[in-house]
Amino acid sequence: MPQQRKRGIYLAVLGSIFWGVQGPVSQWLFTDTGIKPEWLMGVKMGLSGLFLLAYALIQQPKAVFKVWYQPRDVVRLLIFAVFGLSAVQYFYFLTIQASNAPTTTILQQLGTIMIIIISLIVYRRAPSHAELIAVIIALLGTWLLVTKGQLTRLAISQTALGLGLYLGFSGALNTLIPGKLFQKYATLIIVGWAMLIGGLVFTIIHPFWIDVPPLNVATIGSVLFIALFGTALANLCFLGSLRYITPTTAGLLNTFEPLAATIGTVVFLKTSFNVWEVIGGLLVISTVFILSFAKVKPK
């Protein structure tokens, strides 16, 4: 395997693991320390945005502020920051709070299915055979996941399921909204500004200096891990991997997210899962492989 491809694979896997592990860390913060998702959102997005923009200033200082000179692009950036990047991360935290990290990370994979549905409704683009198969498998896997194999009764609350669907939908918007921005500007810069804007919005909603949670070494370390590793470095590693491997390969490696979340939850939070939940999770994750292989298949 060429050295550059190896580097890309390592970066993609590392980014997925960072994002996945932040799930159980967040779950611990919500259940054991009383930290509010709104407080954590303001702190972690603000710190992540500052970190990414500082890195961008070192890499390409002349390009960092260009987006602010184009009014239409400023509007797109604000919409992406609020309804895309902020929404998906906020619903991620809310779904963790209502269920657990592995379930949340698997429900997040439904964003790909939401994109197919949105494309059908908005763009009148009929799904391919592979996409239809992926939708059916994802729905079956989700049903097993939320019922634990008892098909007539929900094993998670209706609130958790509803938030999981919002999470998938906001994940789809997070993918669809910024397309034109990424064509004109570096992804790192757009994500950095969107993070900072999201951090400012949630700081207005819940100022970080009001109702400060009990801060000790474990709490501060967990918050910094979520901000720097689970958010900023997770994005940097994923974006960096695209210099060496294709988006399809990176998408396949993205399945390390629920794996990392599950291992972290079982090891550190002592959460157990039955066989039906495992099968359901694997079915949802398998849709990534189905869609990725379908994209590279010759016409």
Rank of each mutant, 00 (worst) to 15 (best):
L252Y: 14
P178G: 04
P37I: 10
N254Q: 15
L40R: 03
T231F: 02
I116M: 08
F169Y: 10
V217F: 15
S272K: 11
S286G: 02
A234L: 00
L52V: 13
V223K: 02
A186Q: 14
G164V: 13
V88A: 11
L200W: 07
L269Q: 03
P71E: 09
L47M: 15
T255E: 13
Y69V: 11
I113T: 07
V25A: 04
T287E: 00
E38W: 08
V212M: 12
I133T: 11
T248E: 14
P2W: 10
R243S: 14
A172N: 05
F256P: 05
T219L: 08
E257R: 09
I17E: 00
F225T: 01
F293I: 08
G42D: 04
Q108A: 15
L77R: 03
L283I: 00
G168V: 04
L242T: 07
I285H: 03
R125Y: 07
S99Q: 09
A250D: 05
F169N: 05
F80P: 00
Q59G: 09
Q158A: 15
F80K: 07
L47P: 02
T105E: 12
N274Q: 08
A250E: 12
D211K: 13
F80T: 06
L215F: 04
F83R: 12
A172Y: 09
G171V: 06
L151C: 09
L228Q: 07
F93D: 00
I35Q: 05
Y55I: 15
L242A: 14
L14N: 01
S241G: 08
L151T: 08
G149S: 10
S272V: 13
S119C: 09
T249C: 10
P24Q: 06
L11N: 00
A260V: 10
G23R: 06
G251Y: 05
V223T: 06
W143P: 03
W276Y: 14
S26C: 11
T112A: 15
E277W: 00
A134M: 12
P2Y: 09
L200G: 02
L259D: 09
P2V: 03
T262S: 10
G141V: 07
A232N: 08
A234Q: 08
W143I: 02
I205P: 06
T159G: 11
L94P: 01
T255R: 08
L165I: 15
Q108I: 10
G34H: 11
A63W: 01
K299T: 12
W276I: 07
L167W: 09
K6P: 02
K66Q: 14
R72W: 12
V191P: 00
K44Y: 05
M41R: 11
I156K: 10
V82Q: 06
S26F: 04
W209M: 05
D32V: 01
